[in-house]
């Protein structure tokens, strides 16, 4: 299994470390040529404005968008969730728009609003949730599965091949979400 970790900016090394721990191969996506032979994508945390701009400038935007629409599994955390969102609250600069949800950027405010909590994600209990200048999801289309709420706000969803999270599993030692993602990639391969 070969996972392409989008490495234009942000905390991509943390995801790679976790994937390697779980025995998956990963490759850093910085240019179009890096996309060959990929079985799944990870969109890391970072700054969505920077990442979105670089995807376009480095000619990654169209091939990635097409691959996701064609069913390539993707795990997106924080800024990554913003990149996938179909709509952004009070913001017209959307990006890949593959995930039919509306996301509120900096939903919890500035850095002083960042926090860590524990919650249930799908059938996983007591998952550490690290929110750093995090977004949350305000609206989902009917076919989107809500994986997690935190204090009545949607913070994790799945839509077919796409998993979107407000928080950062890669900043913890808990590998369950990455394992679930790898399972999704594997099931797509069979």
């Amino acid at each position: 299994m070969r996972i392409g970790v989008v490495a234009v900016q942000g905390a991509f090394l943390e995801h790679e470390k976790m994937l390697k721990e779980l025995g998956a191969d990963c490759v850093e996506i910085r240019q179009k040529k890096d996309l060959e032979g990929i079985d799944g994508f990870i969109f890391p945390g970072g700054e969505s404005t920077v990442q979105g701009k670089l995807l376009k400038e480095l000619d990654l935007f169209d091939p990635i968008q097409k691959a996701i629409f064609n069913g390539m599994p993707v795990l997106a955390t924080c800024a990554g969730l913003i990149l996938l969102a179909e709509h952004l609250e009070q913001d017209s600069t959307t990006h890949l728009q593959t995930l039919p949800v509306t996301v509120k950027r900096n939903g919890y405010g500035r850095q002083l609003g960042s926090f860590k909590a524990y919650g249930t994600v799908d059938d996983m209990k007591n998952v550490p949730l690290v929110f750093i200048r995090a977004p949350y999801i305000t609206e989902v289309k009917k076919e989107v599965k809500i994986l997690s709420y935190y204090e009545n706000r949607i913070v994790a969803v799945q839509y077919k091949n796409q998993i979107g999270l407000s928080f950062h599993p890669e900043m913890t030692k808990d590998t369950r979400i990455h394992e679930a993602f790898l399972k999704l990639v594997k099931s797509g391969k069979n």
Binding site: V8, A11, E14, Q111, K116, V130, I132
Partner: peptide
Amino acid sequence: NTQYELNKGLAQMLKGG
């Protein structure tokens, strides 16, 4: 400690930038 981890975490999000 948690706040310090979150603060280190924000710096991690800035990496490559």
